[in-house]
Write a protein that binds this DNA or RNA. Sequence first.
DNA 1: ATTTATCTGTAACTTTTGTTACTGCCAAGT
DNA 2: ACTTGGCAGTAACAAAAGTTACAGATAAAT
Lengths: 210, 210
Amino acid sequence: MLTDLKENFTHIFEDELIEEINQVGILREVKEGEKLIEIGDYVRSMPLLISGAIKILREDEDGDELLLYFLERGDTCAMTLTCCLGQTKSEIRAIAELDTTLIMIPIQKMEEWTGKYKSWRNFVFQSYHARLTEMLETIDSIAFYNMDERLVKYLQNKQKVTNDSLINSTHQEIAYELHTSRVVVSRLLKKLESMGKIELYRNSIKIISL
Amino acid sequence: MLTDLKENFTHIFEDELIEEINQVGILREVKEGEKLIEIGDYVRSMPLLISGAIKILREDEDGDELLLYFLERGDTCAMTLTCCLGQTKSEIRAIAELDTTLIMIPIQKMEEWTGKYKSWRNFVFQSYHARLTEMLETIDSIAFYNMDERLVKYLQNKQKVTNDSLINSTHQEIAYELHTSRVVVSRLLKKLESMGKIELYRNSIKIISL
DNA sequence: ATTTATCTGTAACTTTTGTTACTGCCAAGT
DNA sequence: ACTTGGCAGTAACAAAAGTTACAGATAAAT
């Protein structure tokens, strides 16, 4: 774990903090598709992402989903931060988008380190900022763009996160994450294909140029 | 100013911190409609809201607006926090919704206090949490609800913030903040009126029961 | 009092998105 | 080989939201 830590966080945290994380952190590996947090869960530890990616989803009372953003290497979950401190329930669902490695930090340490280490404070604030920014982008997408543009953004984002121009999703899955219907997704994907921007296969989409 | 401070923050901050705020904070009064922050501005101080309300708006490249949330008594601007620390530009616009009083804190103090005062840290984290939660509610509204429901939420919210069941807005102004067109707002308001939930006047709307 | 600008109401229409229904297709499992 | 279930394509339609246009009402300005 120490190696992972140093590789990913040595430029961010001072040695002493790295050592502390190494002491108390618990390494956790999750498989693609595995659920990390469910809406309503109490959160007891804070994840540092070493590798892989986690998707963060919001849900309404009917069970309809919406993809908010992805967490990647070096990220932490801002929601978790405040849930820990405020003892509130999770507002979101977190699912591994890829096989993912994380270090779990007990929440008591969070408070302690925030007083003790400037680098930790900066990290926490930067995380908040990054997440707020991503939330704003999500809001921009749903408020200012039509579904065709949102779909393109979605595909681009997915390609970036998975680092793979072949996206292994069904139209139905995409529809869930964009909170629309399968028929709409199929329709718009077909249009993108006819423009030569993607190629459609069963269970997967190849991105040519978006 | 000390009186204001004690009235609003004495349960949150320890005496020593109240004293420090009193030393370095600058009292500022803004009139309804006055702009506090524009998108792209660099932010050099952090506001503590004593009274009144501030609306936070997002804008797309075409200049279309969207109301994100209101800041009220006891709140601070989470965006500002990270903008200060990260030296980044503002992503949002802030306009006084009512006549408002705030205390402006120089950003250097922020970093200092975060290390020094636990109560300050908690306040900052709680602010982040509150703002993230409000952003989630905004996302819920635009992603999961139709315009008629969003309009009702908007009116309810406005009533709560201004503490007045008479809303002094034109249909056009509401349309801007919900990012839709005036005709749509007029249409839906008329429907609400015919249901007996509101009464429509020129430049104002009276809320009966929503 | 008359003009002017702004606000609201409404009709008619277009576009976008969502829904229903049915088809053929492919792949896994028997 | 054949059945079965999930996936994708498409048409036809419905609903929601956005657009254009215009008329009447009201308030402000001259």
